[in-house]
Structure formats: C-alpha cells, structure tokens
C-alpha cells in the first residue's frame, strides 16, 4: 500500500513538474535541424558524388562505428574481451563438474525439442542480422548478441554438460574469440601494411580510398555492396561476440565441485 501511494506521488510529481515547465516555456522539444557533424556523417555515408570521401555503406551508424570512429570500437571490444579474461582469471583453479548429460537433467522434453528446432533458425537469423550490418540495422555485435540466445538456452534447457559433450568447451570458445579479435585487429591494419609494402601513403583503419591515399578495400563485388572493411569487421565481431557470450555463460553456469577454501 505504501508503495502504491509513493508511486502515485512520484508519477504526479513528474506530470505536474513537466506541466509547470511546459507552461513556463522551458521546453525540451528537440530541434528540427541537425548538428554540422551529423550532416557530414549523413552526407558522406553513401555518396557516389564524393568517391574519395565516403564509406559506401548506407547504414551510417555502422559506418560511424567501424569506419569514422573505428578506433573506439576496436577498444570497446577489447574492454569486453578483457572483462571476460578477468572473469577467467577469477575463476582459475576452480574444479568444475563434468558429467554425462542424462534425460533427467534440464527441463521437460517438449522444451528440449523446441530448442532443438529453433536453434538453427535463430543462428540463421542472427547471421543475417550480422552479415547485413552494413545495409540494414544490425552488425557484428547485434548479430552476436542475438546468436548468444542459442548457447544460453541450450545450457539452461539441457545442461552445460550437454554443450561440453557436443564439443563446445570453454577452451574452444576462447580460441574462437581470440581468433575473431585478431581478425578485427588485422583488418584494421591491413591497408596500412599494404601501403607499407607498396610504398603508398595509407592510414590505420583506412577503408575506402581518400584523396591523399589511393588504397581501398574492395567495396563492390559483382554488384554486391560490401563496404570494404565493414563486412570483415562485422564477420569477425560476430564470431568474437557470440563466442564471448558463450564463454562467459559456460564459465558462470557450469556447476562447481566443492570449494577448497
């Protein structure tokens, strides 16, 4: 009862205060105009009239995330990676059980069967979200996070031993994750290295050729728009994120044997 009263008070305060503010002309109505920087991004994200000043990706958020501000995103994945490494460090030396999964473990057989059918579908959907990241909303992280439903549901519905039994071990996931991240890192410096070899000026995180640096990733393969490095980044990020989530869930959810201390 106390909660209801205080909730009512809270909501009334919000409504009344905003009424006061709106009446006094202190509004927070957004403007119809954009900032200079935003217009630059919107104008150059896919612009055939500026062939050496564009990302050639219609999705400007992905373009910002992986090209204009690619450095941020590289280190953002590094943060996630380091968090999981720190988690592994905190979980070292803990004995985890490893049994053979039985029919008894997990939830009811109906849920099990449903999970079996939907697993491939969810993965396909997630891959579609991830691989169309440069065209439609989505991208590596979004796809990977959607794909992470599959391991979570499998762990919960069957058991974490089931995943181990099917060959999804934390060691393999760590390897996959490292491989994906190394792929991201190498993609980011690939054009720089190519420029060094060819003696042409080029930058780290370069994607499409600029006025001063003529190197460019292939962005259009037989009519399919790939947006240069964006596609590769999305692919590797998809691998890294989905395996990272799987790894985190495996090490958190596997039951532990008796602790020593």
């Amino acid at each position: 009862m106390k909660r209801v009263v205080s909730l009512a008070v809270l909501v009334t305060i919000v409504l009344g205060m905003s009424l006061l503010l709106a009446l006094s002309g202190q509004s927070f109505y957004p403007s119809e105009n954009l900032r200079w920087l935003a217009i630059v991004y919107l104008n150059t994200t896919y612009n055939p009239y500026l062939p050496d000043f564009t990302v050639r990706s219609p999705e400007s958020v992905t373009a910002i995330v992986w090209d204009y501000r690619g450095l941020d995103t590289l280190y953002e994945t590094t943060v996630f990676y380091l968090a999981i490494i720190a988690g592994l460090a905190l979980g070292r030396g803990v004995k985890r059980l490893n049994q053979k999964p039985t029919d008894e473990s997990g939830l009811s057989p109906i849920v099990k069967t449903v999970t079996k059918i939907t697993g491939p579908m969810i993965l396909a959907v997630a891959a579609s979200i991830g691989l169309h990241g440069h065209l439609t909303p989505g991208g590596g992280f979004q796809g990977g996070a959607t794909a992470a439903v599959v391991p979570v549901v499998f762990i919960v519905v069957f058991s974490s031993f089931y995943l181990l039994w099917k060959g999804v071990s934390s060691q393999r996931m760590l390897t996959l994750r490292s491989a994906g991240l190394i792929g991201i890192g190498l993609t980011s410096i690939s054009l720089f290295l190519a420029g060094l070899l060819l003696g042409l000026p080029s930058y780290v995180f370069q994607n499409i050729a600029k006025a001063g640096s003529p190197l460019s990733m292939p962005y259009d393969v037989h009519g399919a728009l790939l947006s240069g490095t964006l596609w590769w980044f999305n692919l590797f990020e998809f691998l890294a994120v989905s395996s990272g989530f799987t790894l985190a869930f495996i090490i958190l959810m596997t039951p532990e044997a008796e602790e020593k201390w």
């Binding site: 939830l107 009811s108 109906i110 849920v111 449903v114 999970t115 059918i117 939907t118 579908m121 969810i122 959907v125 439609t136």
Partner: peptide, 26 residues
C-alpha cells in the same frame, strides 16, 4: 525484407511461446 522478417518472427513466436508457457507452468 519486412514481409520475410515478419513471417520468420511470427513463426518463431508460434513455436517459442507455448514452450515458454509450458516451462513456466511446469
């Protein structure tokens, strides 16, 4: 794209929602 995604979504909900209710009920 919208049509395809809508059909896939509705199919997934059709399969998943009874499983969820069943799990909760159980």
């Amino acid at each position: 794209f919208m049509a395809g995604a809508a059909f896939v979504t509705s199919f997934l909900v059709l399969i998943l929602s009874p499983a969820g209710s069943h799990a909760l009920a159980r």
